[in-house]
Design a protein around this nucleic acid. Structure first.
Lengths: 214, 214
DNA sequence: GAATGTGAAAATCTTCACAGCT
DNA sequence: AGCTGTGAAGATTTTCACATTC
């Protein structure tokens, strides 16, 4: 067991395992096999074991993995053992949906404030989250104690917003705007690009020649 | 130039190139270098050339790639040269946001109808899209001429909805519910899992030791 | 007996580096 | 001169297969 830097796909798999473990735990199961995890996440048993042994050796030959133990290890590994305060910038369609999205809470993200530049929105609340003036960003970030920002503004103003965020001292950004953003070294940037997913689906519709499994 | 089956990451890159080409076209550029594409998408020039030559050889040494030509080839390759009729199931927070999302139109997706089981929503319209009773799905799908469905219902009812869709004759599903879905062979399924993105960001916050570039 | 952990092989993906074209 | 296209090398990811452990 040697802790390695995880690839993006590796993190995704761990996240999928984690979800299955949560479900198994709720169902009252105490042990799962690598094969169960594989079937549930559409990977192979060998892949699952390889992924897990990279971080931890708690498998019991003939018996499998202790659900509770493994879950808590992955939880820790994925940083899900803390609550992160987060601000949201851009309260349009997508931003509003995100404010109402329960998954954020479930993933230990606590939205402490939203920011927009639309005077009709500023001062109101959505799902108990106050909407503030983007101009107040810099002055209020510190006391909000948020290290992470979700950007849900149009592509055309995304870079501008990101610059403001960086200047205000944010450390990580989850970007939903379909555009390339430039951030200084040291700032974590993660893009969620629906456009690319749509393109991918388009491609699959055009080229449905993939076999799902062998 | 031999057409190869594209990996998921490969499709993503082509999609990114496509976007840059669109921007370049709007800006009036006629040629781009592999190096331009690389910088814009954060890959390497060699990677770009490798990706492109897999599908087409239109690069001119010393001059680069014809923006218009390359764009239209990628457009075709990605299936973006057609308009797809699509239905949306689940008009909650996320579903409503998607109905208002202009990216769908821009990506040649035409939402022809939405379905829900909430009587308060059925019969209304959002952004000119009529909301219908999910019970009418099977009887109305054919005349809607949609091969693709977007699923934006809670995880707990997603499989049920997918079964209905498959029974009604849908061919492809874009799933936003954070759960594993089972579909018959031949049905294309693409998951957009925000949970996994959030987990990934969490991990990056915890382990900020990655260097962005070499 | 049954499933794990893991070297080693296989497959896949990325980069190098340079011949060849314009 | 400058950039493409591409064999070959290098790196990484995935799978195989089996000795090991419970």
């Amino acid at each position: 067991m040697k802790t390695r830097k995880l690839s993006s796909a590796g993190i995704r798999r761990l996240s999928q395992y984690y979800r299955y473990l949560s479900a198994s735990e709720s169902a009252g199961r105490e042990f799962v096999f690598s094969d169960d995890l594989a079937k549930a996440t559409e990977h192979t048993a060998a892949q699952v074991r390889r992924d897990l042994t990279t971080h931890v050796n708690i498998g019991v030959p003939g018996k499998g993995y202790d659900v509770h133990k493994l879950k808590s290890i992955l939880k820790n590994l994925l940083g899900k053992d803390k609550i992160w305060n987060v601000i949201l910038v851009g309260v349009g369609n997508l931003g509003s949906a995100l404010l109402g999205y329960k998954g954020l809470q479930e993933h230990q993200f606590n939205v402490v404030a939203a920011f927009d530049n639309d005077l009709r929105k500023i001062g109101r609340q959505i799902d108990n989250v106050p909407i503030k003036d983007i101009l107040e960003l810099k002055s209020s970030l510190r006391q909000l104690e948020a290290r992470l920002a979700i950007v849900a503004v149009p592509a055309s103003s995304a870079q501008e917003v990101v610059n403001l965020l960086v200047e205000a001292g944010i450390e990580a950004i989850l970007n939903f705007a379909p555009t390339k953003l430039v951030v200084p070294k040291g700032i974590q940037l993660q893009n969620v690009d629906l456009s690319i997913e749509l393109d991918r689906l388009c491609y699959l519709l055009e080229n449905p020649l993939h076999c799902r499994h062998k």
